[in-house]
């Protein structure tokens, strides 16, 4: 599958080394679901998987997608540098997204760590757009410091709504920060949800996800109600090359969102 040429319409800084690109796909409807990803190419440098972080203002002629990129290496840094009018390659959408249908009628607990909020953002938009279909909706977000909080204005706007609980915590802060300090797992015990009828969506660094899962299980959630987004290096993104193998599964085809009871044994392993 060859990438099509897409163009950046806008670029917004969302944190240290983090940029959100508003991308004109040139297609009318790519039907990207919350939790899915695209392969983005910085021409002449390389191609990497990046999750959808929202939908832009699409027109009848072209759909716009948002991707939030943290510059960690050559390809992500080149993508993060792209400005309005610049071209990039785009293949996708790929993968299995968040279980929005299974969440209907249940309390939804979303636990995000660091950049892990980006792939969860479309799921939050989905929940809030059809708020009546779900029980309590809670977002627990942990990040490094107040300066690293992603999508800050949007989080503040959501906080003003009365139909979603939002708790933000940082690992450390200077005086001036009035919010919580401590790891995100400590917020789980204070969240209000009925563990008999709840579903959890978790995304963040793998260590953070492991400890979050423990906290969710301690709070009474069963393994088949916890979903996480797994990251592995990718090449083809269509289940052919085996690059993204994760035990018996392929992350590009069977994930990135996976149900915890299906990957329980893998998450504990150090190197796979």
């Amino acid at each position: 599958m060859l990438p099509r040429v897409a163009r950046v319409r806008r670029r917004r800084r969302d944190g240290p080394q983090v940029w959100t690109l508003d991308i004109e796909t040139g297609e009318t409807d790519t039907a990207t679901l919350p939790g899915q990803f695209n392969m983005l190419t910085a021409f002449g440098i390389g191609e990497v998987p990046i999750s959808l972080s929202g939908l832009g203002e699409s027109s009848a002629a072209s759909q716009r997608l948002l991707h939030t990129v943290r510059a960690v290496g050559p390809v992500s840094a080149a993508l993060a540098r792209l400005g309005p009018g610049d071209a990039l390659g785009l293949r996708g959408p790929f993968g299995v997204g968040w279980p929005m249908a299974a969440a209907a009628g249940r309390d939804v607990v979303i636990v995000a760590g660091g950049l892990g909020l980006a792939p969860l953002r479309p799921a939050l938009h989905h929940l809030l757009a059809d708020r009546g279909r779900y029980g309590n909706v809670t977002l627990l977000y942990g990040t490094r410091s107040p300066d690293d909080i992603l999508f800050r204005r949007e989080l503040e706007a959501w906080r003003r709504r009365l139909d979603i609980d939002i708790e933000v915590t940082v690992d450390h802060a200077r005086s001036g920060w009035h919010g919580h300090v401590g790891v995100v797992t400590t917020l789980v015990a204070h969240a209000s949800f009925d563990p008999q009828n709840a579903i959890a969506l978790v995304c963040g660094p793998e260590v953070m996800m492991r400890f979050t899962i423990n906290a969710l299980r301690d709070a009474g959630l069963t393994d088949d109600t916890i979903y996480l987004s797994v990251e592995r290096n990718m090449k083809c993104a269509v289940g052919l090359c085996g690059h993204c193998q994760y035990g018996p599964t392929l992350v590009c085809r069977d994930g990135p969102v996976m149900r915890y009871d299906r990957v329980r044994g893998l998450l504990a392993l150090k190197e796979i």
Binding site: Q17, V72, G113, R144, H172, G182, V183, P205, V207, M208
Partner: peptide, 13 residues
């Protein structure tokens, strides 16, 4: 929790 904070899991590589 201190151990987790020390790991600086959200740190920028």
């Amino acid at each position: 929790t201190t151990r987790l904070q020390l790991l600086d899991v959200y740190g920028t590589p």
